[in-house]
């Protein structure tokens, strides 16, 4: 039996209530329960979190860096999605 058999887990930590979980790192563990415990010991030794998610790394589908440009292209030519696109006369308030 070697570590090869232990799946990789990605760890997400909520640093305090009101904030979303953020990726903290990864670790190996045989099951979800131990992944959580290991994550607590590894990523929250100094009170860095109030909640942890562990996700099997194999369950994550990632966009490919090779397709980066075409994949995100559709957003690039739509400046009208930003509020700064619009000209508003000076003095108009609450807009």
């Amino acid at each position: 039996m070697t570590n090869t058999d232990w799946p990789l887990w990605e760890v997400f930590v909520r640093s305090r209530r009101g904030l979303s979980h953020t990726h903290a790192g990864s670790l190996h563990a045989p099951d979800a329960e131990l992944a959580l415990r290991n994550a607590r010991d590894l990523y929250t030794r100094r009170g860095e979190g109030v909640s942890i998610w562990v996700v099997p790394a194999a369950a994550i589908t990632a966009s490919s860096p090779d397709e980066k440009d075409p994949f995100f292209e559709p957003a690039a030519d739509k400046p009208y999605r930003h509020p700064t696109f619009y000209e508003i006369p000076e003095g108009v308030k609450h807009l």
């Binding site: 039996m1 570590n3 058999d5 232990w6 799946p7 045989p30 099951d31 099997p56 194999a58």
Partner: peptide
């Protein structure tokens, strides 16, 4: 430490269905 790793893996294999953490 091999026996600890073996025990953890055996436990995980036994409870895979419950935890839903089955991995390739």
């Amino acid at each position: 430490g091999a026996w600890v790793r073996d025990a953890a893996a055996a436990y995980a294999a036994k409870h895979t269905g419950e935890t839903g953490a089955k991995q390739a």
